[in-house]
Design a protein around this nucleic acid. Structure first.
Ligand SMILES: [Mn+2]
Ligand SMILES: [Mn+2]
Ligand SMILES: [Mn+2]
Ligand SMILES: [Mn+2]
Lengths: 222, 222
DNA sequence: CTAATTTCTTAGGCCAGACTAAGTTCTTTT
DNA sequence: AAAAGAACTTAGTCTGGCCTAAGAAATTAG
């Protein structure tokens, strides 16, 4: 029962889509950019391997064994992203792609050494929590910026890391984890939000505001 | 015509075995730990792709296109080895294995950034020259320690990096690139060499003495 | 110079992981 | 409650990269 790169990618994807629930095969197919039949096939195999539970037409849920592997890959990914930024000077819109390939090949030794070099960090460049070595993902209470009421302030916690263009745009607006934002206005008819970030004011679309996760204002830490 | 990881390994292996000559399929099979028929099959495909020339029963020789890819992989490998040692504190007997996996997945950007971090180095931890970005492997004039005449001194230039145990032993004897060694005696009947390294004297077997490459004494540089 | 041995290739197959085309089953609509 | 539509699975294929068994060519030995 050998854990291939493909298997790691399936488990990671299911984990990130699922977060404690059933995941539809089509969702997996979409994320991994493979056809739905490919997912059905792989998922049957992973069920055989006891890495997930699968009920036909019902979707899929990771077992503890499957989740353990998923979390290891996620830890690799997020540590690598941070290492690329901190140690090699990558811009934050390029770390994801590189980490996506490296996450499958680094050894435990490599993982430990970069974790140490980074001072055992807790979040990646986009604010996502890094699972601990024993497979625990720290829970964080966040909601979408879109959900913040008009007039309220909040602290940016996490941003989506999949789209480099979006990341560059978010950076240009000052949407970094830790930044304080205030929602000044929400235009009606699915219109944009007017927000203040530091000194500046920006109009941001609702789609974008769904990709920025925030917590209550006034960060507890620096 | 996509260059897979397997193809990269074949080309690299052929390059390192060949160094300007025909390479037997069995030699490739031995090095890559695959069966001879697997090599024949792959080699036919690589010939199709114009990455090497293949004549049945005669062996194989890289084309310029094939050599270019091989040198890129070798550059990745050797830069990675040095980076693992210098930046992450790996001992020199562990860098090879890790680099063996990473060499296939890093981007040009990663390559450039570690090269820069290392100050555009010219040799890896074992003394092997690092091919330049435009695909030139600096030639070095070396011979086996075994070939040094009794009484003569020489400077260690390169050591084999495949066997971690051997590397640890070589380190314990002081056989690092740059070290000065003097051959005091060669025991007859394929016996060991008595050599001086710094203050210490050691008896080393002929097999080991074949894995240490040296140049004329008195290093030109420090 | 033939015979034995070694080296290499062909033949045939397997497995992982993807695909398209053609059903099923579930869900939504009327 | 039936029909239409969406979601999912089955069936059948393909490609890459490996394998073993058997045969052909090259090399070495007698
Ligand atoms: Mn990422
Ligand atoms: Mn991230
Ligand atoms: Mn090496
Ligand atoms: Mn080396």
């Amino acid at each position: 029962m050998v854990i291939t790169q493909a298997i790691e990618d399936y488990l990671k994807t299911i984990y990130l889509l699922g977060q404690g629930g059933e995941v539809a095969t089509s969702a997996i197919a979409l994320k991994l950019k493979v056809s739905p039949p490919s997912v059905t096939g792989m998922v049957k195999k992973l069920a055989e391997m006891k890495l997930l539970r699968y009920t036909r037409y019902q979707g899929v849920e990771l077992t503890p064994a499957g989740e353990k592997i998923a979390l290891e890959v996620v830890r690799h990914h997020r540590l690598l992203e941070l290492y690329l930024q901190e140690a090699l000077g990558y811009p934050w819109d390029k770390v994801h792609e590189e980490a996506e390939k490296l996450e499958h090949v680094i050894s435990e030794e490599f993982e430990d050494r970069i974790a140490e070099a980074l001072g055992w960090p807790e979040t990646d460049p986009h604010g996502h929590p890094i699972p601990t070595k024993d497979g625990v993902l720290p829970a964080v209470a966040v909601r979408e910026l879109l959900a913040v009421e008009t007039g309220q302030s909040a602290t940016v916690r996490q941003v989506s890391d999949g789209d480099p263009g979006m990341l560059r745009y978010l950076a240009s607006l000052g949407f970094f984890p830790g930044a304080t934002v205030q929602v000044l206005e929400k235009a009606p008819f699915e219109g944009p939000l007017r927000v203040r970030v530091g000194e500046a004011e920006h109009a941001v679309g609702r789609e974008l505001a769904r990709h920025v996760l925030v917590s209550a204002a006034t960060p507890a830490e620096v």
